[in-house]
């Protein structure tokens, strides 16, 4: 698992897409920190968000575009290997769970580093590091990554996950927020399955998001273990 995780982690830094996303994250962090006062006057924020206005911009970026970012660079994490049959070199050497978890944690570490660098950049302006918002953002990325891995296991063709990645990346936050705030009794229960309901609350319920990510990974693992390579 460690070897695969390390390989995935370093591999992600090499792609053009990853470099663009890192640049977007850093630029957003820099400008949201620099123009935070202007931002606060323009939109409604919770007390905690107002206090941590410097990092709220980054959280918003991950909420609205995080799924798109994660999908764009990790949509083919598993299915590219099965499609090109390089997976055969892996499954004949280690367990399928180790492959799945290695790839997941390698990607998660990539996002952790990207986010940590962004937060550190912000802390230069704000002179503080908001670990709560950092943890919230990280939990959201964990969820988004687990969903991406699940889709990559479920759908064998990388071309399909690339297409779906764009669709889901755009639609997921819109539907997620709609479900979170809707009063429709037939749909309102679904809010417990989206990360937005827990992010909207200013408490530690964001840990439920990590639990949801764990459930998706568990399902992905069950499917992957039965999959022909």
């Amino acid at each position: 698992m460690y070897v695969l995780g390390k390989n995935e982690f370093y591999g992600l830094f090499k792609g053009v897409k990853s470099i663009i996303i890192i640049a977007i994250l850093l630029v957003t962090s820099y400008y949201s920190a620099k123009f935070s006062e202007l931002l606060m006057s323009g939109i409604e924020l919770t007390a905690r968000e107002a206090k941590s206005i410097h990092t709220a911009g980054l959280l918003a970026l991950i909420i609205f575009f995080g799924q798109l970012f994660v999908m764009s660079i990790s949509h083919d994490t598993i299915n590219r290997e099965t499609h090109e049959r390089t997976i055969r070199f892996l499954v004949t050497r280690t367990s399928r769970s180790a492959i799945l978890m290695g790839k997941f944690f390698g990607s998660l570490l990539f996002w952790f580093v990207c986010l940590a660098v962004s937060f550190l950049l912000i802390s230069i302006y704000s002179h503080k590091l908001d670990l709560f918002i950092f943890s919230q953002t990280m939990s959201l990325l964990t969820y988004q990554l687990a969903l991406t891995i699940l889709l990559s296991v479920l759908i064998p063709r990388p071309g399909v996950t690339m297409f779906l990645g764009v669709i889901i990346g755009i639609i997921f936050p819109i539907i997620g927020f709609w479900i979170t705030f809707t009063s429709n009794i037939w749909l309102t229960w679904m809010k417990f399955m989206t990360p937005f309901y827990y992010l909207e609350r200013d408490d530690y319920t964001f840990f439920v998001i990590i639990l949801l990510a764990g459930m998706m990974l568990f399902i992905a693992n069950l499917i992957f273990r039965r999959r022909e390579c």
Partner: peptide, 30 residues
């Protein structure tokens, strides 16, 4: 699995890696 070696019937490699990098990576995996 650490004690067996497998050459599958249909082999595509990681196109961006050299032969040495392949061997280092796959051996570490074993």
């Amino acid at each position: 699995k650490k004690r067996i070696g497998v050459m599958p019937d249909y082999s595509t490699f990681y196109s961006s890696l050299t032969a040495i990098k392949h061997l280092k990576f796959l051996s570490s995996l074993s």
